[in-house]
Structure formats: structure tokens, C-alpha cells
Amino acid sequence: MLQLTTDSNWTELGKYIIKTEHDIVQVRQLIRVHAKEMNMGIIDQTRVTTAVSELLRNMYNYGGGGEVLVETGVVDDKNALIITCADEGSGIEDLDLAMSDGYTSGMGMGYGLPGAKRLVDRFEIKSEKNIGTTVRVMKWR
């Protein structure tokens, strides 16, 4: 799986595997629990849960499932909830296109990635053809 640069100061809160649609529902509910535990407001909880739901759907539809890592740590002097979603799917060929509003490669609705990006405070993506895609989102607390 493609790795993004991490910080050794981050603490792991949980690691989940996405294989079925039920996992998507379960994991996004767990993300809300993590956000709640970090004392995020109800709207930020909803934002981060919704963003992750979009990422998980992409992962399930295009990557055949994958792995979700939930961490917490200090980024740019801010307390952050950090969620990294990695799959070993076919990868995204044109990242700029996938990140543009309204773009869909068929099954998606064209709101997934750009929508998720608008809901979080930081968004990183790395994708390589036939290796997979890794997306990391952060929400400040």
C-alpha cells in the first residue's frame, strides 16, 4: 500500500478493515465516536464522518476495500484527528480530474473526493496505477 509521510508523535486510535458495505457503516460510526471523544462539536463530527463515508465508498467501489487508520496528533500546532484510508485498487489515473467538482468515473456521483476535501481541514492524496490509492484527511480540534 502507498504510504504517506507520518509523524512519530501521532497516537493510533484504531485500525479497521473495509471489506463489505456493513464495514463502511460500522467504521463511519466509529469515526464519529473518535471525533466525539476528541470533543469536536456536532457539526464537525458530522463533517468528518461524512467525509470518511465518501472515502470509504470510493475505497469499496474502486479499491475492493482496504484499510483505515485513525490517529490523533499535533499538526501545525493544532490538535488533529487524522484518518488515513488506503486501498490496493487500480489507482486513480488523473488525480486533478478526480478532484474536480462533478467528475465521476461511473458508479460515483461526482461529489466524493472534492466534497470530502471541502469538509475537512487537510486533505492529502497519493495514487499510483495498479498499486492503489491512499487518502489522508485531518480535522482540527
Binding site: 457539526i43 458530522t46 463533517r47 461524512t50 466534497g115 471541502r118 469538509l119
Partner: peptide, 8 residues
Amino acid sequence: ITLVELGL
């Protein structure tokens, strides 16, 4: 709010 921010 989330729906509006998503663009929906």
C-alpha cells in the same frame, strides 16, 4: 450544513 458543503 454538511450537505451544502458537499455541494449537494
